[in-house]
Simulated scan of single mutants.
Amino acid sequence: MKAIKIPSFLHEVFGEQQSIATILVILAFGGCLTLAVSLVFPDILHSLPLWRGILALLLIFDIFCGCIANFTRSTSNFYAARKKQRIVFIAIHVHILLVAVLLDTDMVYAVGIWAYTIAGAVIVNTLIGKSSQHFIGGLLLSIGIGGTFLLSNIQPYMLLAGTLFMLKVLFSFAVDHYGGAEQRA
């Protein structure tokens, strides 16, 4: 697949170059899963003002797309070469908290998922360049997913969004999948 140069304002999402097919897959995954959530759980939007529902779905779309985008070589290497931007990216990820507020769901679960994800991502990020990074990232992700599924009272749509948020930030993003940090050193 031929890579195209990504405009600089989209580097944080797609990296510096990406194939059109990959971009389409990322957007299709995020769009289809977001649409599925809104169709399977239409009641999540009924009692809310339209703007809150739309904003919540946009944040959910971002979570879903990020799960896949962060696994691409271009996005992974873009952040691997930029340690400060990597830390900022981890720190600004409050999406799951905003989704919980916008959808008026139980904040305790959202805060727990968010805190675990950010703490795990910080730990995994400190392991860049070490052979244990993938293993520790996978271990923390597995513990987090297992713990999240044990939260029996969480709404199914929040369970899905929270689990994929964890995948996006803790493993898909925090792990240097292609050794980009070592290549730029």
Score class of each variant (00 low, 15 high):
135 F>M: 15
80 A>Y: 02
121 A>K: 04
77 N>S: 13
137 G>V: 08
111 V>M: 15
98 L>R: 00
82 R>Q: 08
91 A>C: 09
95 H>S: 11
93 H>Y: 13
106 D>T: 13
96 I>T: 09
97 L>P: 01
92 I>C: 03
102 L>N: 06
132 S>W: 00
123 I>F: 01
90 I>C: 03
130 K>N: 14
109 Y>C: 10
118 I>Y: 00
134 H>P: 06
112 G>D: 04
83 K>G: 00
127 L>I: 14
126 T>L: 07
96 I>G: 14
83 K>T: 01
135 F>Y: 07
118 I>K: 07
83 K>D: 06
105 T>S: 12
118 I>L: 11
76 S>F: 11
114 W>R: 05
116 Y>M: 08
86 R>L: 03
138 G>T: 10
88 V>A: 11
133 Q>M: 11
136 I>Y: 01
108 V>W: 14
103 L>Y: 06
107 M>N: 07
107 M>C: 08
130 K>W: 08
119 A>M: 12
133 Q>H: 02
100 A>G: 14
121 A>L: 05
103 L>F: 09
98 L>A: 12
119 A>V: 07
137 G>H: 08
107 M>T: 12
107 M>L: 15
77 N>I: 03
95 H>Y: 11
100 A>Q: 10
106 D>N: 15
89 F>E: 04
124 V>Y: 01
103 L>R: 08
134 H>Q: 13
125 N>K: 05
103 L>G: 11
83 K>I: 01
128 I>L: 08
77 N>T: 13
102 L>D: 04
128 I>R: 12
86 R>Q: 05
123 I>D: 02
92 I>P: 02
116 Y>N: 05
79 Y>D: 06
119 A>F: 06
132 S>F: 02
134 H>V: 15
103 L>M: 10
124 V>E: 00
100 A>Y: 04
83 K>E: 07
89 F>P: 00
93 H>P: 05
104 D>P: 01
95 H>G: 04
128 I>E: 03
117 T>A: 15
93 H>E: 07
80 A>N: 12
95 H>N: 13
84 K>E: 00
120 G>A: 15
78 F>S: 06
138 G>L: 12
130 K>D: 15
95 H>A: 14
127 L>N: 12
104 D>T: 10
124 V>M: 03
132 S>K: 11
94 V>M: 14
77 N>V: 07
